[in-house]
């Protein structure tokens, strides 16, 4: 929806995102000349710099944009739909399904066939979770949705823990534990291809619910009286759940679990969009992308011997922001 100030906000966030995207190409783990890399790519020459910029930094930066955007936008849509500012894309249990799928790839040793098996396994896990979720919820409302999400998420978490428990090879359990923390390191265009279709379809579905989310500010009865069909197979809830689940599942399959982006970004941007859910979707996409680009730059800049996982970093940054909100909220209600 158009609103002068929210359009201005989107333009500003988009500009920041583009600058950060450029920086992500420019600055990496190695001291190669990104400029030479770009020149070589333009000229069609193959060089180490061209490979690093074009085949490693570019897909990594694109994934930061897509995954951060999906998490931010999904969080905004879910918070709008459930009318609960604490909802997070994780509540649907689909990211847990993706984690389980990926962990099974580790466990069965399929990873030896190809590195791509990992995100593919995650994607299959996510899709199974989406089907289970949509089937479980059926025509039920928001409460059924939350219950089904919680049930699936604890089921998948238990199965993941079981798999971790059964893994014999200590190297494998170490890798699994690391993967579960979320990372964008060493992702290539193959990962982008795995992540993109679900993300695009999912975001389109989520965007199609924007007006209904606005109507829902006034309650379910008013939204229905204004012609929105909420439940049933073609209803708003099904489109939203399917969209969020597809997008978040595809992303988790590629990056592992990255927390707090979907929770914090919509929360921070909401006051700037006049508290109207549909106006929050685009800024939340951009804000999520920015947060993940910054976090990934930080991961590459810190050199502590061990690689810092991006999911750990977003949680470290997100939790204090949230604590700050709690303190201000408490002050305003006193």
């Amino acid at each position: 929806m158009t609103h002068p100030s929210s359009r201005g906000l989107s333009v500003m966030l988009a500009a920041v995102m583009v600058v950060l995207l450029g920086f992500a190409l420019w600055h990496g783990e190695s001291e190669i000349s990104a400029w030479h890399g770009l020149c070589d790519i333009m000229a069609g020459r193959s060089s180490v710099a061209a490979t690093i910029v074009g085949q490693l930094r570019l897909p990594r930066a694109l994934l930061a944009v897509v995954i951060g955007g999906v998490l931010g936008c999904s969080g905004a849509a879910l918070q709008g739909y459930l009318r609960n500012p604490l909802a997070d894309p994780g509540v649907l249990g689909v990211s847990s399904g993706a984690a389980l799928g990926a962990v099974c790839v580790f466990y069965t040793g399929l990873l030896r066939l190809s590195v791509v098996m990992l995100p593919l396994g995650g994607l299959i896990g996510a899709l199974i979770a989406v089907m289970l979720l949509v089937g479980l919820v059926g025509r039920g409302g928001a409460v059924v949705l939350l219950l089904a999400g919680a049930a699936l998420s604890s089921l998948f978490a238990a199965l993941t823990a079981l798999t971790l428990n059964l893994v014999q090879n200590p190297y494998a359990s170490f890798e699994i534990a690391h993967w579960l923390m979320g990372s964008l390191t060493d992702r290539t265009f193959q990962h982008v291809l795995i992540c993109l279709p679900g993300s695009v379809v999912g975001l389109v579905l989520v965007a199609s619910t924007g007006r209904a989310l606005d109507a829902l500010v006034l309650g379910e009865d008013v939204a229905r009286s204004m012609g929105f069909i909420l439940h049933g197979w073609r209803g708003v809830q099904t489109r939203l759940v399917l969209g969020v689940a597809l997008a978040v599942g595809s992303c988790t399959a590629v990056s592992g679990a990255i927390g707090f982006v979907g929770l914090v970004i919509p929360h921070l941007l909401r006051p700037l969009t006049g508290y109207q859910p549909s106006r929050l979707l685009v800024p939340s996409f951009l804000g999520g992308a920015i947060m993940l680009l910054v976090a990934d730059d930080a991961v590459r800049a810190f050199n502590w011997g061990v690689e810092l996982q991006i999911g750990v970093l977003t949680a470290l940054a997100g939790a204090p922001l949230f604590l700050y909100r709690v303190v201000t909220l408490r002050r305003s209600t006193l």
């Binding site: 006034l218 008013v222 012609g227 006049g274 508290y275």
Partner: peptide
């Protein structure tokens, strides 16, 4: 157009934006 009994916490949107939601149909 339907207006239900009022209940729950009021939304935080601006009054003008909220009234404009009536144009959604």
């Amino acid at each position: 157009a339907f207006m239900p009994q009022e209940g729950g916490a009021p939304p935080r949107m601006g009054l003008g934006d909220l009234v404009a939601l009536g144009r959604l149909p």
